[in-house]
């Protein structure tokens, strides 16, 4: 069930700071928080009411537990994130899930990891023909199912 995303009150700066700790910079890509993914995260989370509710709760709980997150050092932010992960595993899981999904649907990431980026359908992938020779050894085996 899709829900309305316009009324969600998410601290996008905090979300970007969390993203930076979850998915760091690599090669020519900046850390995830610098890739302007927060808008897509908010949009996508709204594609299911149940998920969005958990996600919003997660952001609120994270903010409550870490009111000064942005001012912490990187190591301190990692510690705070691990503490949240340990204390609130279901809420943290929603943050991690939506972060990974949105990061790995980004074309810049596809290019770096060599992923085609195509949706599974409609094109699919090439299906090779069936090769009977793979059964050469198994064909030699005698039946061993149990008779009754």
């Amino acid at each position: 069930m899709t829900t309305n995303t316009s009324n969600i009150n998410i601290d996008k700066n905090l979300l970007a700071a969390i993203l930076d700790r979850l998915i760091p910079a690599v090669d020519d890509l900046p850390s995830a928080g610098q890739m302007e993914l927060t808008g897509e995260i908010v949009r996508l989370s709204g594609q299911q009411a149940r998920f969005q509710k958990i996600f919003v709760n997660a952001m609120e709980a994270f903010a409550t537990a870490n009111p000064d997150f942005a001012s912490l050092t990187g190591a301190e932010q990692d510690d705070a994130t691990r503490a949240f992960e340990s204390d609130s595993p279901e809420l943290f899981d929603s943050l991690l899930t939506i972060s990974y999904i949105v990061y790995y649907k980004d074309e810049r990431v596809h290019k770096r990891i060599g992923w085609s980026g195509r949706t599974p359908q409609p094109d699919g992938n090439e299906m090779e023909p069936w090769d009977e020779s793979v059964l050469e050894n198994m064909r030699k085996r005698k039946p061993f199912w149990r008779t009754v």
Binding site: M1, F51, I101, P120, Q121
Partner: peptide, 16 residues
Amino acid sequence: KYASASKDYEFEMLTN
């Protein structure tokens, strides 16, 4: 209309 043709298929797989 199955989600395998959607850009959001990895989200849909876990939710709707």
